[in-house]
């Protein structure tokens, strides 16, 4: 079976500093895959390399067997990879409804059309309402995204990432900064919107990771030191020494 995402010898340097040092990684189609690691390990950088925000210094990235190395983000999105951001990244002056609608327009084939009136596109607007119901923001549809609460903004981030129906969804720390109850809600939302799709996420909250992930990769100083099931990762001595041990001590 073709991998959803395959990284081969991926390297990223900023000037003389190598941040990602030859990462090989296969993410299977339909799995929920978490990337964990200490601060500064390069998790977000790896996300940016896969999604086209950064260009590769070396190696290659394949999406469902097709090479996407160094393509711009919009072309990668069109090939079926969607992502959210660690820092909330919305269209703040536009309403919640408009945010989701913008997230749907490309995949609904509106492209750069200036001959459709969006308010009259019933199927599009119906789908927007479905997404809003799904993420629990239907009653906030008129509100500018910039004035939503933090948890609501995170939910909207996930909604926009998932709205377009991409096969592969990447979430960068989706529960960061949330309370316990908000985190629980976010987990069930992630389960719901990623059902039947491939999920890749970076997350610091080990509870969320072990709850959601089918497999986990551990990234330390720009290298993957292990990729395995949550149970095996938990018992992996190298991982415990490099990361989980330190996490447990902090906890």
């Amino acid at each position: 079976m073709t991998s959803a995402i395959a990284l081969k010898g991926v390297v990223k340097s900023f000037g003389p500093t190598q941040i990602i040092r030859g990462v090989d990684l296969d993410i299977r189609q339909g799995e929920r895959h978490a990337i964990i690691g200490p601060n500064g390990a390069g998790k977000s950088t790896l996300f940016h390399l896969i999604s086209g925000r950064y260009t590769l210094t070396g190696g290659s990235v394949h999406l469902k067997g097709e090479e996407i190395s160094n393509l711009p983000p919009y072309e990668i999105y069109r090939k079926g990879l969607s992502r959210s951001f660690q820092v909330t990244n919305l269209f703040p002056q536009m309403s919640v409804f408009e945010n989701v609608r913008c997230g749907l327009m490309w995949v609904k084939n509106y492209r750069y059309s200036f001959w459709h009136l969006v308010d009259r596109e019933r199927d599009l607007n119906r789908r927007v309402m479905e997404v809003l119901e799904e993420i629990g923001l239907a009653n906030r549809q008129h509100v500018p995204a910039g004035v939503l609460t933090y948890a609501e903004q995170r939910a909207l981030e996930i909604g926009i990432a998932a709205a377009g129906g991409a096969d592969v969804i990447m979430l960068d720390e989706p529960t960061a900064g949330m309370s316990h109850s908000e985190t629980d809600q976010a987990i069930s939302l992630i389960r719901k919107v990623t059902e039947g799709r491939t999920l890749v996420m970076v997350e610091h909250d080990m509870g969320v990771v072990f709850d959601l992930a089918d497999r986990i990769s551990v990234l330390v100083y720009g290298e993957i030191i292990a990729t395995d099931t949550p149970e095996n990762i938990r018992n992996n001595k190298a991982v415990q020494e490099a990361y989980l041990g330190a996490e447990a001590e902090h906890a």
């Binding site: 086209g52 983000p73 919009y74 999105y77 069109r78 990244n89 269209f91 327009m105 995949v107």
Partner: peptide, 9 residues
Amino acid sequence: ERAEFIGYS
């Protein structure tokens, strides 16, 4: 930047 991640150049 966000616009690029929903398919638009």
